[in-house]
Design a protein around this nucleic acid. Structure first.
Length: 431
DNA sequence: TATCCACAGGAAATCAGGGTGT
DNA sequence: ACACCCTGATTTCCTGTGGATA
């Protein structure tokens, strides 16, 4: 039977509604209430409050793992502060939010600030000498005649040490060149020991105030989910225990509220698709499975070609050696063969491949451990796959070139097979 | 106990590719 | 056309290392 789009939409409208406001479960939604963050809100408010009396607050540095509410709290306080400024009739400060995960170099951070202050004349994406840009930045800030808060989120993602040091040094010292305007830095880092590799000169001025956001526990996550569910869903849509299960799963995985919320959203989407009216514990488990599957498959599919070849090498080694682990040397040998013979690409160096293997490890597709076999085998990294064979095959199979070599036997493994065979043969002959 | 394997992993250099200004 | 600037990926060079073995 043919698919009837009209009927599909009619049915869709007939179906019981789950969502009242789907948006409330998205990662960048900032709710009015932030459960279990009252202390953090109070402390930040205390630091910022002097803005209301025209003084400049201290620079602030915030640490905490992903999904602990750092960004939400800062944005929440800044909104309220702006409202208050308008209420009492003083010029409200400029808030400039930069996510260093997207703006990854020191140059780009400075350029983004300039472009924010003067969107009419954007700076070129590259090419401007640093001193000219700093001069421009100072002139622009001075002409604005205001207090400017610069929030550097995920500051640990700035590319290299030089970027971190230079951009932070410039920004923390820029006030010395300003008369009418002032700049205030709020740094947000996912890594707790981010400070460790900063230049001491930057450190003293940047970290005037510091605070740490602890991870949420299961009970706190439950409260967060409950308050968001109340906003996002129609009343009485969640079976008792389903939210608790969501919270428990997310608590186990680092207490990440973002993760808990996306789990809940996925769950609701599944229930909606099935035309049900209740979120059950089973749906949560299905959602968790699908979420995990979706993200790894999507991740593998979007891998650059060199990383795909490396992953493929690990898979082929594991498959044909019939051992779950292979070492760096074996992986590199297979990799070289695949990239030359099969892909006709220039092979990367062993160092680069080792770095890419570590990246794959960080992303969770493979797991690896350092081992030493002493004088016989030296020190090496043992690598094994963390995704199921079938999943890997279906994700890599999307790429035609990968698909073609899924059954390929690397020649160094083939050779040892022959050797074993010959040995066995000779042994038989001797008998 | 010194040696040595097979790398690990950091730092600096290099290169290609994008840009500007003259 | 040319000098110069910035980025990001990669290479080159180097020192470091855990532990079985001579």
């Amino acid at each position: 039977m043919e698919f009837n789009l009209d009927k599909f939409f009619d049915d869709y409208l007939e179906k019981p509604q789950i969502f009242r406001n789907r948006n409330c479960l998205s990662a960048n939604f900032i709710p009015d209430e932030l459960p279990h963050r009252t202390d953090q809100i109070r402390i930040i408010a205390q630091i910022m409050a002097c803005t209301l009396k025209n003084s400049i607050p201290s620079n602030l540095f915030i640490y905490g793992k992903t999904g602990t509410g750092k960004t939400a709290v800062v944005k929440h306080v800044s909104q309220k502060l702006n409202e208050k400024c308008i209420e009492i009739g003083i010029p409200n400060p400029n808030w400039l939010y930069i996510n260093c995960n997207q703006v990854t170099s020191g140059y780009r951070v400075l350029a983004t600030i300039c472009n924010y202050l003067d969107p009419e004349n954007p700076l070129p994406p590259t090419g401007t000498p640093r001193d000219i840009m700093i001069e421009r930045l100072i002139t622009l800030l001075e002409s604005k005649n205001c207090l400017c808060f610069i929030i550097l989120d995920e500051i640990d993602s700035l590319k290299d040490k030089e970027s971190k040091d230079s951009v932070l040094y410039i920004l923390t010292r820029i006030n010395e060149n300003l008369i009418n305007s002032k700049v205030n830095i709020i740094g947000i880092s996912n890594i707790l020991n981010f400070k460790d590799d900063l230049d001491p000169r930057v450190l003293s001025s940047l970290c005037e105030e510091e605070m740490v956001f602890p991870a949420y526990n299961a009970i706190e996550l439950y409260d967060i989910l409950r308050s968001r569910a109340a906003l996002a869903f129609q009343p009485n849509m969640c079976e008792e225990g389903s939210l608790r299960l969501c919270a428990a799963i997310a608590a186990k995985e680092n207490g990440d509220a973002r993760r808990a919320l996306s789990l809940l959203r996925k769950c609701a989407e599944i229930v909606e698709r099935m035309g049900k009216t209740m979120l059950s514990r089973t749906d949560v488990l299905t959602a968790q499975y699908e979420l995990e599957k979706d993200t790894t498959e999507e991740f593998i599919k979007n891998l650059p070609v060199q990383q795909k070849i490396i992953l493929l090498s690990i898979y082929l080694n594991q498959k044909h050696k019939k051992t779950p682990e292979s070492n760096s040397g074996e992986i590199y040998t297979t990799y070289k063969e695949l990239s030359k013979k099969v892909y006709s690409l220039n092979a990367l160096t062993a160092k680069r491949v080792a770095d890419l293997v570590k990246e794959l490890d960080l992303s969770g597709v493979i797991s690896s451990r350092l081992v030493s076999f002493g004088r016989k085998g030296g020190r090496t990294r043992m690598v094994s796959l963390k995704v199921r064979d079938s999943q890997l095959k279906s994700s890599l199979g999307d790429d035609d070139r990968c698909k073609a070599v899924l059954e390929y036997v690397p020649s160094h493994i083939r050779r040892t097979d022959i050797n074993v065979d010959l040995e066995g043969h000779r042994y038989k002959a001797l008998l």
